[in-house]
Simulated scan of single mutants.
Amino acid sequence: MSPAHAQTRAAAYAAAYAHTHARTPAPAYAAAPAPSWTAAPAAGRPYVYLEGAPGSVLQDTLSVTNPGTRPLTVRLSGRGGAPVAFAAPTVTVPARTRADVPFAVTVGPDTPPGDHRGSVRVGAAGRETDVALHLRVSGPRLAALTVEDVRVDRSGTLRYTLVNRGNTVLAPRLAVRAEGVLGTVLDRPERALPLVLRPGERATRTEPWPDPPAFDAVTVHLTAGAPGATAATARADAAFASPAGLGAAAAALLAAAGAATYAIRRKR
């Protein structure tokens, strides 16, 4: 083989090797989306907690973090029973920065002692989030619950209203008892109700009675209580006289009258 021919074959082998072992370009991956902004109480707390007397002004700080590459303008406002005030309704947070925003809560002079709930709402870039705020107003605590407007429908359904007359949050419990002409016709022991009443709040509820008496005059007693509160009782009177009950009562009266007549005749 001539030297020229050998060089040609070597060049062909090198080209084939380079084509076969060419490095495949790495696939292109989409860049991960930038993390969104966050808002939370300062110092890593789960919620804002403030405590003070009526008429006081309480202060705290909200941390807003902007991890993006552009400045972020957030809107600030208060929600619920705790009045929140900021120095300005909007704040601009620079890129990749955390801003600590001070705010104040003014406790009105007529605010009742006890627990009050609210939140700080933060909105930006088409999204809103609420930071929970718990306010405890100092002063004597009063747990008071009443049960009102008790009535009984023709179907036997009991209707009543619970009212929180104190200044603390209550978890009510209820017991029901009904007395008829011949004795107790309904007796339900005290049980927890699936609701919570804030100070001044009222709730109208119903209590089913699927098998009321067909013919009777009853007095229904509702007793409502809550931890720390004195039990409250209310009553309502109702008369039941369904067609079936009337028929049974009439039959019983006729039977009694017949028995009395038979006894008189036998005596004579």
Rank of each mutant, 00 (worst) to 15 (best):
A14Y: 01
A14G: 01
H19R: 15
T24P: 03
A32R: 12
P35G: 09
S36R: 12
S36Y: 02
P41M: 11
A42L: 13
P46Y: 02
V48A: 03
A53N: 04
P54Y: 08
G55M: 07
P67S: 12
G68C: 12
R70T: 14
P71F: 11
P71L: 09
T73K: 13
L76F: 00
G80Q: 02
P89L: 04
P102V: 11
F103I: 06
A104Y: 00
T106F: 03
T111V: 03
T111H: 07
D115Y: 03
D115S: 05
D115A: 04
R117T: 14
V122R: 04
G123I: 09
G126V: 13
R127T: 14
R127M: 09
H134D: 07
R136P: 06
G139D: 06
P140C: 05
D149Q: 15
V150F: 07
V152Y: 07
V163I: 05
G166K: 06
V169A: 06
A171C: 05
R173V: 10
L174S: 09
V176S: 07
L182S: 15
L182N: 14
G183N: 03
D187L: 13
L197K: 04
R202D: 05
R202I: 02
R205T: 08
T206Q: 14
E207M: 01
P208L: 09
F215Y: 15
T219H: 06
H221S: 14
G228W: 06
G228P: 07
A229F: 07
T230S: 10
A232N: 03
A238L: 11
L246K: 13
L246F: 11
L246V: 15
A249K: 09
A255T: 14
G258T: 15
Y262L: 07
A263G: 04
A263H: 04
R265V: 10
R266K: 13
R268Q: 05
